[in-house]
Write a protein that binds this DNA or RNA. Structure first.
Length: 801
DNA sequence: AGCACGCCGACT
DNA sequence: GTCGGCGTGCTC
């Protein structure tokens, strides 16, 4: 028997299996999806980790096969569905199998680790493990497992006698807690007590406790629970006097504190209609995709919860993706309230060990509901009844390095396998998804009413070209400052959004708001200080930086943008009494920093929350009655055909943050483009009108969703070789395309040189191309032979740069 | 990544 | 003449 193994070879582009002989004693143990150690390369000592991809009877390899060294798993870590999914993903994203397999697994299974077992029941006296292990109770396993031991362990695991656990050697630090244990007898305590001064109250109380409970032991908090007046210093004294013993004890990972259970809310008519459509698809085992479109506060979450509850009732499981989960603790809490310990949460804030624990709970079927960020799309759930992607338009669902997958595509693919419905939910769906609903590929479900009595906020667009501005502070209109002052007087809170997207990257006229655009692409040009020029990311057009505005001849034309820090200082000068909380990458870099700031603002320890896009998402503060947008324009001028869509989404989202409770909310949007349709329609929260308008422009410009896009890029240390290669690739792709396809480029990439690597690229825009995919896959394979080059193929790149 | 193979300069 | 420089290529 031979095993085809996928091996992880760093820094090398290799996408094939290597055949290994399976030693006879392992033949009954191996299965596809297991991790193995194999000897690889001439280095006899070092073994590499790999995955068994397939088992076969013979090899086509001509040379002498090496044997598998060791198998690392008693049962496959990836089941048949996951292996097939990895194969599809590698093809679909033009990436390597090994990177797909690895992104599916929690880090703990990639890093170095140690195996231990935990006994679930006392071992029977005749257990063969007694003979095979030095001590069958301590959980310790030898570094190398003999096939006999492996087999015995697996039998014991299947008999429910023990479980095998992997402990991550690195990264997960074992937490310790200081424990104080009584060391002296009650009699000795009494003797010690008589020697103390009468006013040593704490020590006397402590000795009383020791006499009353001689076996007492615990952390200082436990002692203090018994003796509220006790301080840490007294415990230290007690240790010094020999009454207590101080020791470090391992602290187990904090079990998730579950919120109080909450019953389902009654559904509104709209919600009921939406839910029933999904439930019907689930009952019929149809892999139907639903686009649930509903403004903030319209109750999409209740529909999700109802659908997930339905899946559980049928003995199935449910998977829900949310963007960057740290940003939406409210969502996690609502799912946990409903489904309690059935929920596993997967997000980036977990340590490798915690993440692995959650993954194991899912794999074993202990957790039947999964909530997680992008990578949770690979959660090893079985028998999935429904999958949900909340805020489906979010760009964080696309991974930016290999494999460049989009979680939405993974979910849609799994839906076919599991024959289950998918709900894509958003207040501002991506144009791609909304267009598919138009074409009846997805079924559109709309929630148009806010169930609670909450009023929509009043939205006002402020024209910054002729607005009164605070002297010396051109970022603030007096209208906005007056509104902020009002909130300070009324002890209400405000949120200020500083739109940093596209910061300082484009050139705009301060007088008329004109942004320099590419003559060919209708996309704003990007400023490159290094070469003193404006460049188009899309077609490569280049022009010098103008001295005066080409529209109004004003000389106040320059790069645009402002940092949060500077804005904070300016605002503090204007409103000296305001307590301002700044939220940006600097203040949230530390783990949990984001949540700390949110909690602080929620406790009303600040009046104004000033931040970038991250404040727009999923936060709900009842006391916030004003939302101000300092500069709505910046994201509008991104060198990207999605600029309007991004701006619309951001403004709609942030506007929804005002006045969600009983108080009337106000939104003020400062802009140099007050007539722009994205800003106007966002101020009316009119997604459908925006969709119609934007689709029109996309159609005229030949952009997605009317075309699919693929970016092909090549890099090499030598510029001429990279350029040569991109033309060579270009010539190979061109002839297989139909006349409806459009090729842009080749051009050097915007930042043509990174790390002494030169990048060249071209873009393919297409509708239906039979041969394109196989051609590109062939190119990926062929490029493996050519060293020095790196080929990158990105489907539907988020930004074209 | 390792490690070997391979084809050009300063040394016993 | 050889020791060794690290560029290039392979690893079942």
């Amino acid at each position: 028997m031979i095993a085809q193994v996928i091996i992880d070879i760093p820094a090398q582009q290799t996408n094939r299996t290597f055949d290994y002989a399976v030693p006879p004693e392992l033949e009954t143990l191996v299965a596809p999806g297991m991790r193995v150690l194999v000897p690889f390369g001439r280095g006899k000592k070092h073994q590499r980790q790999g995955f068994i991809w397939r088992l076969a009877n013979q090899s086509s390899f001509k040379g002498q096969l090496k044997p598998l060294a060791e198998i690392l798993d008693l049962a496959p870590v990836l089941n048949g569905e996951m292996l097939a999914l990895a194969g599809w993903l590698a093809q679909d994203t033009f990436s390597f199998l090994i990177s797909c397999l690895q992104t599916m697994l929690p880090n703990a299974l990639r890093a170095s680790y140690q195996r231990r077992f935990h006994l679930l029941t006392p071992l029977p006296a005749d257990s063969p493990l007694t003979a095979l292990l030095d001590d069958p109770t301590n959980g310790h396993l030898p570094d190398e497992l003999s096939p006999l031991l492996l087999r015995t362990l697996r039998n014991a695991e299947q008999a429910g006698q023990l479980t095998i656990a992997y402990q991550v050697a690195q990264r997960t630090k074992v937490k310790h807690v200081t424990v104080f244990t009584v060391k002296i007898s009650p009699a000795a305590a009494q003797a010690a007590q008589s020697e103390l001064r009468a006013n040593a109250h704490q020590q006397i109380a402590l000795l009383n406790l020791i006499q009353a409970q001689p076996g007492f032991s615990g952390a200082s908090a436990a002692w203090q629970a018994q003796l509220p007046e006790l301080t840490g210093a007294t415990l230290t004294t007690a240790v010094k006097k020999g009454w207590l013993q101080r020791s470090e004890q391992e602290q187990y990972r904090r079990p998730n504190q579950l919120p109080q259970p909450k019953a389902a809310l009654p559904l509104t008519n709209e919600q009921q209609t939406a839910y029933q459509a999904v439930a019907a698809a689930m009952a019929d085992r149809r892999d139907q995709v639903f686009l649930l479109e509903g403004i903030t506060g319209s109750g999409k979450t209740e529909v999700y919860l109802a659908a997930m509850a339905d899946a559980l009732r049928q003995g199935k499981t449910a998977l829900m993706l949310v963007p960057e989960i740290a940003l939406t603790p409210q969502m996690v809490q609502r799912v946990q309230e409903r489904f309690q310990k059935d929920v596993a949460v997967l997000h980036s804030g977990l340590s490798a060990g915690e993440r692995f624990d959650e993954w194991r709970r899912i794999e074993r079927g202990e957790a039947r509901v999964v909530v997680g960020a992008r990578s949770a799309a690979f959660a090893p759930l079985q028998n999935i009844g429904v999958m949900i992607i909340d805020e489906e338009h979010e760009s964080s669902y696309k991974q930016d390095d290999m494999p460049r997958y989009h979680a939405r595509d993974v979910i849609l693919h799994r839906a076919v396998t599991h024959q289950c419905p998918v709900i894509l939910g958003s207040a501002t769906p991506s144009l791609e998804s909304r267009a598919r609903a138009q074409k009846k590929v997805y079924q559109l479900l709309r929630l148009t009413k806010r169930p609670q009595t909450a009023h929509l906020p009043t939205v006002q667009v402020l024209d910054m070209r002729d607005a009164d501005k605070v002297a010396g502070k051109p970022s603030f209109s007096t209208v906005l400052i007056t509104a902020l002052q009002q909130r300070l007087d009324r002890h209400e809170q405000s949120i200020l959004l500083l739109n940093r997207r596209g910061y300082a990257n484009f050139v705009m006229c301060r007088d008329c708001g004109n942004v320099i655009k590419c003559p060919n692409c209708d996309i704003s040009l990007t400023l490159h200080r290094d070469i003193q020029a404006l460049k188009c990311h899309y077609c490569g057009h280049q022009e010098p930086i103008p001295q005066a505005c080409p529209v109004c001849q004003s000389r106040h034309i320059r790069d645009f943008g402002a940092g949060t820090q500077r804005i904070e200082l300016e605002l503090q000068e204007i409103l000296p009494t305001a307590r301002i909380l700044r939220m940006d990458v600097d203040t949230t870099a530390r783990k949990g920093g984001h949540q700390r700031l949110i909690d602080k603002f929620g406790r009303q320890e600040a009046d104004i929350l000033l931040g970038t896009q991250m404040i727009a998402k999923g936060l709900d503060f009842p006391n916030v009655t004003l939302v101000g947008v300092i500069n709505a324009d910046t994201s509008l001028s991104l060198p990207d055909f999605r600029a309007s869509e991004k701006t619309f989404q951001l403004l709609t989202q942030v506007s929804g943050r005002a006045g969600r409770a009983d108080k009337q909310g106000q939104v003020l949007i400062q802009t140099y483009n007050p007539d722009n349709y994205a800003i106007q329609l966002a101020s009316h929260q009119d997604y459908e009108a925006f969709y119609q308008r934007e689709m029109h422009l996309r159609h005229a410009g030949g952009y997605p969703p009317y075309y699919y896009t693929i970016l092909v890029s090549v890099n090499h240390r030598q510029e001429d070789l990279a350029a040569q290669k991109i033309y060579q690739l270009f010539r190979q792709v061109q002839p297989v395309l139909s006349p409806t396809a459009v090729l842009l480029g080749p051009t050097p990439r915007m930042i043509a040189r990174i790390n002494n690597q030169y990048y060249y690229q071209f873009i393919i825009k297409y509708k239906h191309e039979e041969k394109l995919f196989t051609t590109l896959q062939r190119l990926v394979l062929e490029m493996q032979q050519e060293s020095g080059f790196q080929l990158r193929i990105d489907r539907e790149p988020l930004q074209i740069s």
